[in-house]
Design a protein around this nucleic acid. Structure first.
Lengths: 210, 210
DNA sequence: TGCTATACAGACCGGTTGGTATGTATGATA
DNA sequence: TATCATACATACCAACCGGTCTGTATAGCA
């Protein structure tokens, strides 16, 4: 309550921290973590090295915070993990894929998925990075698997498939689609791949009774 | 012919070049291109900077050569792009996937697909890198698409699908599966994803006549 | 109104980077 | 055998890297 009234100018540590996280996210998103320059991040954030090393012990910790506090939310929000599902899971997933395909920006076709970028770059190099990234993927996958399992219980998803395996494959296909499209710099390819994935999802519906 | 008889020791430029390419490949595979240190590559190759800059004008050119002369062949050979297909394409693809799943090494689960690594890291940063990587993906995708089209002509693949779209999705799914497994450090997840992909391929067979 | 912890600013540092310049041993050719 | 391009080896460099250190303005508290 006392916090909301405060009107310090350029002296709020939370604001400074957020500016650092946001600037670091953008720089890491484009160049990767290792190639991300602290000086560039500081310039973009409009603060100095003193501020950075006041809030974070080192560069790696800044990266971990970017994963946990920026990329994670970014991803889960974009893929509808946070919103409660309606209807049957197949239709819900298809709708999310369609919405994402329709809302693609040139920026994200060029740069791909920030979580996947970090996964590929840092997984073999830094255990803590890997764990943070992997945990986020797990949340996403588990949410999809849970939906599919619910669909099986409600009779909207065929029962001879493993929800967790299907969910992992769906997430992998999405990330792979973004990755290939990023390499080809082609939004059309990305849309096409997501369309095939929607078609695959269709095959998860129960076989029509005969 | 004259070449085969030569027995210079440590003075064959082709051998030196190959050692540089191989050492660069390993270092780039693990650390990424940007973080790959020339000094480390030189130490691993057992040559000095003079040799490197005699064969390549700069670090980037070494990277391009690694893509064209090492990674490309590595990938196409591993995924059966070079060998002529037998039987129907669905069975052929399933067999390749099964073989790859059976022959996974801890090394490649840890480090993922070298081509995909470079794609994700370098695509937004270097056009020439992107083109080289993308061209290799295209060769792979085109080969799969051609097989599927042939299957359609021979009646082993259902005709209401676009071979190129399916092929792109298959490649994307494979790369995504490797990427997720790399993040999770889980060969089991990779095998599971490839298994789901094999199941997806099954749905490409023509519907049984009624 | 002093006092102290917080929240920075900015100069500075050793190490590493990709790249260059120079020197030299080798092998083919004339 | 003399010549000369090739194929390196090695010393060296400026730029940049992440990180540290010291100084200082501010804000809450006694």
């Amino acid at each position: 309550m006392a916090k909301a009234m405060v009107k310090r100018r350029g002296r709020d540590p939370d604001v400074t921290r957020d500016k650092l996280l946001q600037a670091a996210f953008e720089e890491i998103y484009r160049r990767g973590f290792q190639a991300a320059s602290l000086d560039t991040i500081l310039a973009k954030a409009g603060v100095t090295k003193g501020a950075l090393y006041h809030h974070f012990p080192d560069k790696a910790s800044l990266g971990y915070a970017v994963v946990d506090e920026v990329v994670k939310g970014f991803l889960l929000e974009r893929w509808g993990v946070l919103e409660p599902p309606s209807r049957d899971p197949v239709t819900t997933l298809q709708r999310i894929l369609r919405r994402r395909a329709a809302n693609l920006t040139a920026h994200e076709v060029e740069l791909g998925c920030p979580l996947n970028n970090l996964a590929q770059e840092m997984s073999p190099l830094d255990q803590r990075f890997r764990r943070g990234v992997s945990a986020t993927f797990d949340i996403w996958t588990a949410a999809v698997a849970k939906d599919l399992a619910r669909g099986q219980a409600e009779g909207t998803v065929r029962k001879n498939v493993d929800p967790r395996k299907i969910a992992a494959f769906v997430v992998a296909s999405i990330e792979g689609s973004f990755g290939l499209a990023k390499s080809a710099q082609s939004a059309a390819m990305l849309r096409s791949n997501l369309e095939v994935l929607r078609w695959f999802l269709e095959s998860l519906r129960p076989a029509p009774k005969r």
